[in-house]
Design a protein around this nucleic acid. Sequence first.
DNA 1: CAAAAATAGTTGCGAGCGCAACTATTACGA
DNA 2: TCGTAATAGTTGCGCTCGCAACTATTTTTG
Lengths: 155, 155
Amino acid sequence: MTAVTRTKWLSASEMRAWLAYITTSSDLQRAIERDLEPFGLDGGDYQLLAMLSDAPDRRMKMCDLADTLRLSRSGLTRRMEGVMRKKLVERVQSESDKRVAYAVMTKKGMNLLTKVAPHHVASVREKMIDRLSDGEIRALATAFEKIAAGLNVDH
Amino acid sequence: MTAVTRTKWLSASEMRAWLAYITTSSDLQRAIERDLEPFGLDGGDYQLLAMLSDAPDRRMKMCDLADTLRLSRSGLTRRMEGVMRKKLVERVQSESDKRVAYAVMTKKGMNLLTKVAPHHVASVREKMIDRLSDGEIRALATAFEKIAAGLNVDH
DNA sequence: CAAAAATAGTTGCGAGCGCAACTATTACGA
DNA sequence: TCGTAATAGTTGCGCTCGCAACTATTTTTG
């Protein structure tokens, strides 16, 4: 962005896309999170469990987990309190580097995720994916990949 | 969603779209809000001012404002405290219906929005719009309009 | 190798927001 | 018309989360 910003307003088409995106994305997120509530999980818990389930040995360094979840270190500490209280995840101190701790998904956590995931996928389909054409899905993927590339979320 | 959910997983293409969307949208929102901070506004303040600036007489009933901003009543009450402290918005009691209060943008609020809006638009362009082709922008608009139609955000 | 810097994680604090409960006012139904 | 229901808004409370400050460990560097 230049020092003196020469304003180039959004065209009608651009405005339509921006407004549709900005208003709908928050509604969509709420709707999908609401479908998780019956299982005693919120969106943050689910994301955490999903990340761990994909990781080798179902464990991740707190540090890396915070980055992928877009949480601050302290934010992850607090969220871990919640899932640990529910016995879905354990905290394990590293032997090699005594600074680091691992978040490790428990059997109970894995069982819960296995139970919830199909409902979550169904929810994502119902609210979003199944409403879009193949072309729209491809366009969405490339569009957000381009946007992500431009954001260079540091490191 | 049926009672017994028959899981139909996401295809590779669908998963790509979903992941790109879900990870990027949160980064995008943060990036755009960060560009507002130098002006002493956060995303919520900007949205509030933008809605008021579009309304007749730059005023809206608290109630309607809360709905369009996707805030609870109490959430709006608290957010109003902030923008009122900054003298950007005033709270005006209605004469005809003594239950309702209007949020009215002040001259100062209007001046600030006029100053900030070009930077915000530039930010939205830089982070999102200008990175997309015309086709992608059209696809995004129709895609999110379809999604919104399926969410029927009650009221 | 000692001192400085980087890294991992936790804690205190404050901001934002939703829910439930409450007050005040208006609309409605018998 | 009176009583009930609906509507508008605020307040108390709790949750999530980021920032700044802090501790505890490496890692780097002169």
